[in-house]
Design a protein around this nucleic acid. Structure first.
Lengths: 278, 278
DNA sequence: TTGCTCCTCACGTCACGTGAGGTGGC
DNA sequence: TTGCTCCTCACGTCACGTGAGGTGGC
């Protein structure tokens, strides 16, 4: 028989741990003095402690360890438990490896130039959206080409929606894509407003579901459209630096826009990406 | 101005998160209605939210994120924070990779034969010990060779200690090493008892500090010495299977022994190891 | 009598999720 | 009046660490 202090020191665990394991029924002392409440452990319990620590080290939760050690799971169930844990661990490893790569990319950027804005880039999924959409064509990328097209396009779309009795969302969405049809430089411009589910095509607009995007790099641009090209350039540089590549049509989500002056506009730039395969 | 619900849904976070961030001073709403307590966020706060999520994703704690986002840390301090975080992450990755390897080795063993005892093997460090020691030589490894030597050796050592006025620990330690001097098969056998720090060499024993071991694989053997060879074989197989190799003298720590009958003895087998370099 | 070991609460950790119970504007 | 959104507590999570305050045997 070992007192809790002896058992803990030989077993290289803390006394508190043993008390905790007693409390949750994972490792109950072989004998508890009914008068003093002192816990006494048998030599054979070192083997049980060893099992517990081994399973715990593999990352099982104590409740799972309890079931395994008490023999409540047979070989197959144990196998399944460990296979599940392996999958979890593998996923965790992948995520952490990606995190580490991003962290290192970030440190490289910190040591280099533009230190402030780049940090705000984020990696996330984008939900699908039910929108009313209108399209036009611009002569190229860049706000100089886009602005004269997208502004009137939004105004017209908004007017058409109101005329059709639709109350559009205050959010607005624009997307840009190199045109496949026209000559090389043309850009297909789309303006869209999220609308309720029951709205369908109308005069001057089509209603579509924009599909969700699994992975996109995004950043927030605060201020007028005249400086948004800089934000786009930073976003694309960040994508490059972090080991991704653009995979889909880029979008601008206007979080704060029309009634306000352009100085207080807030826009989220969204670029779908995939991991770079090289 | 955005209500908390709008801000949460556009920012793709939960309302509860925003309330929490308000509570800890990480992201305080631009305006709080003094009458209703309603929180309102400005468009500009999307950029702050983006920063927060980006740093959080790298694994910083919210308290650290708060300091960074509030501008309480300059570029150098931020750099240091991220470097520290990188070290943590790298360590975590190493540990998890090792865990995954052990998990897979364990699954291989589960699919194979001996399923029960092998699981109890554990990887841990061993502390240094202050012991009184006596030595002898056996004709080879295996309990058939060792038992006739180690038994009397312990008895004699115990007697010599008592005679010298030392009250030895109930624990006993044995170690075995192929002898460098005699002919090839000889084994150097050491018996030792932990003793108080102030004890020094005496008649029939030497007092030494056994050094700590950084990494060892251990297992618990319950029962008589006649079956301990099986446990050693399993332990060595497990070492092999898990990608380690023996690196040092193996030891047996007798947790329960002498006054009891051998059937209830409990022994920890300890084999120092290092990662296999192949 | 002084240490030593043991005991039982009970709070704190970290970043929220999840009700419970209630209120104000359309 | 019925929904809807918002509010403020407050408990639960996971595996213990860390006191606080007290007791029994050498």
């Amino acid at each position: 028989m070992f007192s809790i202090g002896e058992f803990a020191s030989i077993g290289r665990v803390s006394v508190r741990m043993l008390r905790h394991y007693d409390e949750i029924g994972l490792l109950v002392p072989a004998r508890v003095d009914p008068h003093t409440g002192y816990r006494y452990y048998s030599g054979g319990q070192f083997a049980v402690l060893g099992q517990i620590l081994a399973y715990k080290e593999l990352g099982l939760r104590l409740e799972e360890v309890t079931r395994v050690v008490c023999g409540d799971v047979d070989g197959d169930a144990l196998h399944e438990l460990l296979v599940r844990r392996r999958a979890e661990l593998a996923r965790q490893l992948d995520l952490d490896a990606a995190r580490l790569r991003r962290l290192e990319a970030h440190l490289r950027l910190l040591r280099g130039e533009s230190r402030m804005s780049i940090i705000t880039t984020e990696l996330k999924g984008l939900p699908s959206l039910h929108v009313a959409r209108a399209t036009a064509t611009a002569a190229g990328f860049g706000s100089a080409n886009i602005s004269p097209v997208i502004g009137p396009l939004f105004d017209r779309l908004h007017r058409d929606l109101v005329r059709a009795g639709v109350r559009p969302d205050p959010l607005a969405l624009a997307s840009y894509e190199a045109s496949a049809s026209g000559d090389g430089a043309d850009v297909l411009v789309e303006a869209a407003f999220p609308v309720p589910d029951d709205v369908s095509d109308g005069d001057g607009f089509a209603v579509v579901d924009l599909p969700a995007v699994e992975l996109a790099v995004t950043t927030i641009h605060s201020g007028p459209m005249s400086t948004i090209d800089d934000s786009w350039r930073e976003l694309l540089a960040s994508i490059e630096e972090h080991g991704y590549e653009p995979a889909g049509v880029c979008r601008e989500l206007y979080l704060v826009s029309k009634p306000e002056p352009q100085e207080s506009w807030v826009t989220e730039l969204q670029q779908p990406v995939s991991a770079r395969t090289r």
